[in-house]
Every structure is written in C-alpha cells, then in structure tokens.
C-alpha cells in the first residue's frame, strides 16, 4: 500500500462521521428546524452502539442500537419544538448537554473495554488491486453508506415531490400551511431522520474509528457538522466537500505534529476547524446574501385554530 493511498484512507476515515451527521442536519434545517443537539445525539449513539455491540457480540446490533438511540433523543427534541413550540436554540443546547451526560452514564461500565473494529469491505480481486483497490473497494461499509446518503439526499431534495414539500415548508411554513401541507408531520420526519443520522455517526466513532468507548469521544464533531451545513449553503455536495476537507486538514495536522515543527500542538489541533470554515466561507462569499438559508429556519410554527 502506497503512502498516498494510506493518507487518503485516513482522510476518508476522519471525514465520514462528520458527513453522516451533517447530512442529517441538512435535511432537518431544510425543513426549517434548527437542531443544535447533534453533539449530544452522536455521543448517545456512540455509547449505546458500543454497549449493545459488546453485550450482544454483534456489530450489526450495535449499529441498530446507535441509530435507535439517536432517533429516540431526536424524538424528545421533536416533542419539545413541534409539540410545545419551544425555542429551538435552547431545546437543542439542552439536548446536547443531556446527551453528553446520558452517554457518560450509559458507557460508564464499558470504559476500558476493547473490541475489534467493524472490518472494512473485502471483495476478492477488486480490493487487492494495486493503488486504488483499498481506496475504492476496501472502505468501511459506513463510507459507502455516507456517500449513498449524500447522493440520495441530493436527489430527494432536488428531484422528488416529497423533497419539494420539505423545502417549501422550510422556506415558508405559513404559506405551506395555507396550501394544506402537513408542516408539523414533515418536520417530525425530518427531525427523526437527523437523529438517526447522528446516531449512525456516533456508531462509526465507537465501532470503527476508535473501537472503544470513552466519555466525550465525540470531541466537538457535532458542532463542526452544524457549521458545515451553514457554510456549505445547505447544499449536499458542498457538505461532502467540506467534510473531506476537514478530514484532510485533520490528517495534515497530525503529520505536522509528528514532524514537530515547533508549533504549539494546541494551535495545530485547531487547524482543521479553522481551515474548513475559512474554505467554506470563501466559497460562499460573492453569492447573494442568505441564498440557500431556509426562510423559516428556527422559527416555531403554531397553526391558528
């Protein structure tokens, strides 16, 4: 395996959890809801996934548990912001705090436990191809799922009738309601989808990336996923680009630290965050202001009766 291939593999590894979580949030925000609880849902997903996988001995059960955990936590959020029309920012922050605490509780008995990571795909012949085999045909299954998600969401939002309904509701929920679109139901589905994605991203962290559980292992990735959505102007392919850019910067930063160039390691650790945000800001400069931002983002909706 060549050096380039090895580096690219680590880039993809670092990018995948961000991509999955950010794509979920993109759908939520396109429906007009701001869920700041990704970090919490990811953490609970990671803890539940690891606990379930360890107890059952099955990685698949672990992934399923992580998705369900993210889903359940987002259902709490949906109950608050849709059912009770609470402030979305406050509810999302509460969700993150609650999720981080809850994940520590769930994972408490599993600190220090090790298990084998979910193995990457192996297709005889193809994966063994020199140069590109591992890169194209030997990734973790999560990588293929995340790419399929990106393309699927691109198609769903841009081409499908349901995607149009979702975008319309995010754009102007008063108009949507006046036309008879089911505003709250669509938002519920979107929030649940976002929760499931965050849970899945958490599972990737604890079952593939670092196959163990430690408290706080999400390390701010949920927040970066949130920022990615905004700086990518709510466009799925730009989220993909942003996630890979972040992955690349993370790997570069690790190599710089290893080369010990006499730069404080704390500053280097901040590098991927700064670089990704800068790159996406530069991309969105020059576009018309507020393009892409769903018009009703963050506003609670209460129909007249």
């Amino acid at each position: 395996m060549g050096v380039t291939e090895a580096i690219l593999l680590t880039v993809i590894t670092a990018a995948t959890p961000l991509l999955i979580a950010a794509l979920g949030e993109l759908v939520v925000e396109k429906a007009g809801v701001l869920n700041l609880g990704i970090e919490g849902m990811m953490a609970v997903g990671a803890a539940c996934g690891f606990a379930a996988a360890t107890l059952s001995g099955s990685s698949l059960v672990g992934v399923g548990a992580a998705v369900l955990a993210g889903l359940a936590l987002s259902a709490v959020f949906a109950l608050l912001v849709l059912g009770l029309a609470t402030n979305q920012v406050a509810s999302g922050l509460a969700l993150t705090i609650m999720g981080l605490g809850l994940s520590g509780l769930i994972g408490a008995g599993f600190v220090g436990t090790n298990r084998d990571a979910i193995p990457p795909v192996y297709i005889p012949g193809l994966t063994d191809l020199p140069g590109v085999g591992r890169l194209l045909f030997g990734e973790s299954p999560f990588v293929y799922v995340s790419l399929a998600l990106a393309l699927g969401i691109l198609w769903f939002l841009g081409r499908s009738r349901a995607g149009l309904t979702l975008r319309s509701i995010g754009e102007n929920h008063v108009s949507g309601h006046a036309l008879g679109l089911p505003v709250l139901r669509v938002r519920l589905y979107a929030i649940l989808f976002g929760g499931a994605c965050a849970g899945l991203a958490g599972a990737y962290l604890s079952l593939v990336y670092t196959p163990f559980w430690s408290p706080g292992m999400t390390a701010g990735r949920g927040w970066i996923a949130l920022a990615l959505v905004v700086f990518a102007s709510w466009k799925p392919l730009r989220v993909l680009f942003g996630a890979y850019l972040f992955g690349g910067a993370t790997v570069l930063q690790l190599h710089l630290q290893a080369a010990s160039i006499g730069f404080p390691s704390q500053a280097l650790s901040a590098f991927p965050y700064v670089a990704t945000i800068l790159a996406l800001v530069v991309m969105s400069v020059g576009e018309r202001k507020a393009t892409g931002a769903p018009g009703s983002l963050g506003a609670p909706f209460v129909p007249d009766r």
Binding site: L164, T165, R167, S168, E171, G176, A178, L179, G180, G295
Partner: peptide, 21 residues
C-alpha cells in the same frame, strides 16, 4: 383560493411553487 398576502415561496421557482400545491 388566491391569497391577499401571497402564499408563495421566494427561493423556489414558479413551477416548484405550483407543483407543491
């Protein structure tokens, strides 16, 4: 119904605004 304050979506196209209803 034709609304007084239009029930339109600014960032969508004409066809999308019609299709959604």
């Amino acid at each position: 119904m034709v609304f007084q304050h239009f029930s339109l979506f600014e960032n969508l196209t004409v066809a999308e605004n019609i299709a959604v209803a």
